[in-house]
Amino acid sequence: MSDSSSALRIVWIYPDLLSTYGDKGNVLVLRRRAELRGIPVEEVHVHSSDPVPAEGDIYLLGGGEDRPQILAAERLRADGGLKRAAERGACVFAVCAGYQIVGESYGDDDDNPLPGVGILDIRSGRGQVRGVGEIVADVEPSLGVGRITGFENHQGRTAIGPSATPLSHVVKGVGNDDGQTEGAVQGQILGTYLHGPALPRNPGLADLLLRWRVGQIPPLEPSWGERLHEERLTAVL
């Protein structure tokens, strides 16, 4: 965890720009699953007018429309705090618009390439077909998460470069626009198109982020998160 505090520092980036799909749910579930294990948490909300602290442990970015996405990317690049945090080994969890802008480049609303933050080796643009609906994917086995479920609503297409690997392989849905992979991972940086929000629907993903920052964590008794996860899988497949 952060050297400056004994608490796990969770940083929610730009809720005023990147929180179109109930992304605060990711913050709440991550905090709750940490606290149930006795891990103290400090929650920091960073609005787009604020500097991004480089001393956090887990950084969360959510979804947004085209113009807020462009503004968020510009401010994050100019600020530099998120990139400095990633370079020192912090964990980053980025969803949809957030997923695209932490990459090397992304497309604006006319599919003109714009520079991203450059902490994940992906390049995104606009596809021909919009991915809308439930998605199910099997996470790379070495991550120990299993099958994930979510809701996708994007026209983005994302190509993964050699420094990153796919987060998962699609069972049902569109994903990165190839119908085969969904999301990407590079070190402790994880991006995905999954909404729902992703962590309430997939508590295993939340626990992966916690393991990355605090090491081994004790299991929790199955609760509503696990039940929601199974209900969604059963409904879709």
Rank of each mutant, 00 (worst) to 15 (best):
A73F: 02
E87D: 15
G22C: 08
I217L: 01
A34T: 08
I189M: 06
D110A: 13
L237M: 13
D79K: 12
E65W: 03
G191D: 07
R213G: 02
E43H: 02
E231C: 07
Q216H: 07
Q180Y: 02
D111P: 00
P141G: 12
L120K: 03
Y59D: 04
A206V: 06
G191A: 10
L76I: 07
D3M: 15
G133P: 06
C96G: 04
G98Y: 01
Y59I: 02
E35V: 12
I70M: 13
G63K: 08
G80P: 08
R9A: 13
V145C: 13
G89V: 08
Q128K: 15
T165N: 13
D79E: 06
S223E: 12
P141R: 12
V174R: 15
T158Q: 01
D3T: 15
V145A: 11
G107M: 02
L60P: 03
I119F: 02
R67V: 12
D108E: 07
G150R: 07
R33M: 12
N202R: 13
A159Q: 14
T149L: 02
G215T: 08
S124P: 04
L143M: 12
P162Y: 08
E104T: 14
G98C: 11
A206W: 00
G156R: 01
G191V: 10
G179Q: 10
V174W: 09
H229M: 08
G89I: 09
N202P: 07
V46L: 07
D110G: 06
A7W: 00
Y21T: 03
Q128M: 10
I70H: 12
Y193N: 08
P115S: 12
P162W: 10
L167S: 08
I70V: 13
G64F: 04
R211A: 09
G187H: 07
G89M: 12
D23C: 10
L228F: 01
P53R: 06
R9N: 11
V92P: 11
I119L: 12
